[in-house]
C-alpha cells in the first residue's frame, strides 16, 4: 500500500451505519464523508454514543457500512469477503484497544509476534522483529513477562508494539488512554505521535481524552452519528480545550 504524505490514505464517502438493537434501529453514523491524508495523526472525538468508535471500526475493516464506501489506499473495503478483509487487516492495519486486548497466556514477546504468524517470516525473524518492536516502545526488559505481570501502561505499550510489528500503513487506536492514569496516558499519546513523526505512520485514534488535542494533527468531532463541521466543530473543540485546561489545573490522576 503506498502512503504518499499528504495524499488521502482514507476516503470515507457518504457512510452510514445502522444497527438493529431489539426492535429499535440505531443510527450510529449518518452520511459521514471525510478524507484522511497519509502520515497524519487524526483524532475522532465526541461524547459516548456519538459514533466515533463505529467510524474507527469501519476504517479498520472490522465492520462494514450500511451505506456508502470506505476506501483505504485505493481498496474499497466493501468489495472484500470476511476472510479477505481479515487478510487485509493483517497486512495493512495495526490495532490498539482501550483494554489492551493482550492474550493472557502469551508472553509480551509472543503477543507482539502474534500478527507475524500471518506472514511468511521464519520463527527467528518473527522473534527478532517482535523484540525490535518492544524496544521501540521501551519494553526491551519485559520480553518474557506475561500481561498479568505488567502495569496498564506497559500492557498498552505491548499492544502498540503488536500494532506496529507488521509495519502497517495505518494504525487505529480505540481509546488507547481510556484505562490509563494521566502520566501513562501522555506517554502513550506521545508514542503515537512519534510513530507518525519518525515512521510516517497514519494514526487514527478515537478518544475522550482532551489532552489528545495537543498531540494530533487533526481532530474531528462527532455527535449523534454526525460529523460536526464549521462553527459546530469549532465550539466542540473549544469546549474540549477548556476541559483539558481544567484537567491540567487538577494535575495528573
Amino acid at each position: 500500500m503506498d502512503a504518499t504524505p499528504g495524499a488521502p490514505l482514507i476516503q470515507i464517502r457518504d457512510v452510514s451505519r445502522r444497527y438493529v438493537r431489539g426492535v429499535d434501529e440505531v443510527h450510529a453514523l449518518e452520511r459521514v464523508s471525510l478524507d484522511i491524508p497519509a502520515g497524519h495523526f487524526v483524532g475522532f472525538m465526541g461524547p459516548s454514543g456519538s459514533g466515533k468508535s463505529t467510524l474507527l471500526n469501519l476504517v479498520s475493516g472490522i465492520d462494514r457500512p450500511s451505506e456508502g464506501d470506505v476506501i483505504v489506499a485505493g481498496q474499497r473495503l466493501n468489495d472484500l469477503s470476511e476472510d479477505e478483509l481479515a487478510r487485509w487487516r493483517a497486512r495493512h492495519v495495526g490495532l490498539i484497544f482501550q483494554f489492551f486486548n493482550l492474550i493472557p497466556v502469551l508472553s509480551a514477546r509472543d503477543n507482539v509476534a502474534l500478527p507475524l504468524l500471518l506472514t511468511k517470516l521464519d520463527k527467528a525473524e518473527r522473534v527478532r522483529r517482535a523484540e525490535t518492536a518492544l524496544r521501540v516502545v521501551g519494553l526491551e526488559d519485559r520480553l518474557d513477562h506475561y500481561p498479568r505481570t505488567l502495569s496498564g501502561g506497559e500492557q498498552q505499550r505491548v499492544a502498540i508494539a503488536r500494532a506496529i510489528v507488521t509495519d502497517p500503513d495505518l494504525i487505529v487506536a480505540d481509546e488507547p488512554t481510556g484505562d490509563l492514569d494521566a502520566r501513562n496516558a501522555e506517554a502513550i499519546l506521545d508514542l503515537l505521535r512519534q510513530l507518525r513523526q519518525h515512521f510516517g505512520k497514519t494514526v487514527v485514534m478515537v478518544t475522550h481524552d482532551p489532552r489528545a488535542l495537543r498531540f494530533v494533527d487533526d481532530a474531528y468531532h462527532l455527535d449523534k452519528g454526525v460529523l460536526l463541521e464549521g462553527e459546530e466543530a469549532a465550539r466542540a473543540q473549544e469546549a474540549i480545550r477548556v476541559s483539558a485546561g481544567a484537567a491540567g489545573a487538577r494535575g495528573p490522576r
Binding site: 476472510d83 490495532l95 502474534l114 500471518l118
Partner: peptide, 14 residues
C-alpha cells in the same frame, strides 16, 4: 469472546 474478537481483528481466519 474478547480474545477471539481480538484474534479475528488482527487477521486470523475463521
Amino acid at each position: 469472546t474478547a480474545e477471539i474478537g481480538t484474534l479475528r481483528a488482527l487477521g486470523f481466519s475463521r
